[in-house]
Simulated scan of single mutants.
Amino acid sequence: MTQSFDRHRRLRRSAGMRDIVRETHVHTEDLIYPLFVKDGKDIKNPIPSMPEVYQWSLDLVDAEVQEAVDKGIRAIILFGLPAEKDPIGTSAYDTEGIVQRAVRQIKANHPDLTVIADTCLCQFTDHGHCGVVHEGEILNDESLDLLVKTAVSQAEAGADIIAPSNMMDGFVAAIREGLDEAGYKNISVMSYAVKYASAFYGPFRDAANSSPQSGDRKTYQMDPANRREAFREARSDVEEGADFLIVKPALSYLDIIRDVREREDLPIVAYNVSGEYSMVKAAAQNGWIDEKAVVMEKVTSMKRAGADLILTYHAKNIADWLKH
């Protein structure tokens, strides 16, 4: 009998065959590892909602950075927890702020490591919002001035990349202009270009102590129901001078990653956020899933959707799995 169908299984019949025809690959160089740095000494605070993630004091963080470097991770992003907060987030742009000191220390010990500074005010304001608040309103333009000061102070400390996550209108243009005027024309901006007002951020807010004390962030972060809005946000940031575009969250927004990839040529970063991380960890601890298989399938889907880099709390685990 003449066969009238294709034999697609020929390319799946062995592990070796599957390896040589695999279309999408995750590499250790694709990973960005987040770290929470905190004022104080001898601090390694576990975050209950994020297993295996900690808040680190500067006297202990170098060992954690060294472990990541030893695993082949080439980039980290820093989130700071200050000793004091106030309405305008003064410690965010203090030259002796926690992020600035962490950047200087880490770059001194690991000069070849790419150090990214998250640039926002929410961890540093006593109200927990990402900008200046007046009578319950988050003020856009007044917030930009403080974000520029923060970005410049982080660049002065030695950050390789500034990653503004505030979602104020015009934040990339303001920060790019501020960096250029301060003499930091070669410092890259990794914009949180497409950041949704997601329910997946809860564990991060525990880790960074950054929950809003009133209201929410829906007036500046994007509605999860909107797709076309992402195109406008990404295009604005490209035109304003961004060097990278972050899509956040990643897993529930793979369609958005693909959309942005098809429209923009800049490197795309998928932020595999805290809620996505914690759900996998919880299920794995209960024996419900194979953690390695699920995580690798998840990050492969992000690369397949079009991400060039993946910002993930799983970074050290992934590096180990890729190596072994």
Rank of each mutant, 00 (worst) to 15 (best):
M1S: 15
T2A: 13
F5K: 11
L11N: 15
L11K: 15
R12Q: 13
A15P: 00
T24R: 12
H25E: 14
H25T: 15
F36D: 02
F36H: 05
D39W: 07
D42P: 00
I43C: 04
I47Q: 02
P48T: 04
Q55E: 15
Q55S: 14
L58K: 06
D62M: 04
A63H: 09
Q66M: 05
Q66P: 00
A68Y: 13
K71A: 15
I76Q: 05
I76H: 04
I76C: 09
L81Y: 02
L81P: 00
K85W: 08
I88N: 06
I88L: 09
G89Q: 10
T90W: 03
T90L: 02
A92F: 06
A92V: 00
G97V: 06
I98R: 13
V99C: 05
Q100H: 01
Q100Y: 01
Q100F: 01
V103D: 04
K107P: 02
A108D: 15
N109V: 01
H110T: 02
H110N: 15
P111F: 11
P111G: 12
D112E: 15
D112K: 13
A117E: 08
C122T: 03
T125E: 08
H127K: 05
H129A: 06
D145H: 03
T150P: 01
S153C: 13
Q154D: 12
Q154Y: 09
E156P: 00
E156W: 01
G158V: 01
A159V: 10
A163M: 13
P164A: 07
P164E: 04
N166M: 07
D180K: 12
E181A: 15
G183R: 06
K185S: 12
N186R: 14
N186P: 00
N186S: 13
N186L: 10
S188H: 10
Y192H: 05
A193M: 07
S198T: 15
S198I: 01
G202T: 12
G202R: 08
P203E: 09
S210P: 01
P212W: 05
P212H: 09
D216M: 04
D216G: 03
D216Q: 13
K218Y: 06
T219N: 10
Q221V: 10
D223T: 01
P224K: 07
A225P: 02
R227Y: 12
E229L: 10
F231K: 03
R232S: 07
R232P: 00
R235N: 10
D237R: 05
D243K: 11
L245D: 13
V247S: 05
Y253T: 09
L254Y: 02
V260R: 05
R261W: 04
E262D: 12
A270M: 06
Y271T: 03
G275T: 12
G275A: 13
S278C: 08
A283Q: 10
A284R: 03
W288N: 07
I289P: 01
D290K: 07
E291R: 14
V295M: 12
V299Y: 10
T300K: 14
M302S: 09
M302T: 03
A305Q: 06
G306R: 06
A315P: 02
K316T: 13
H324I: 07
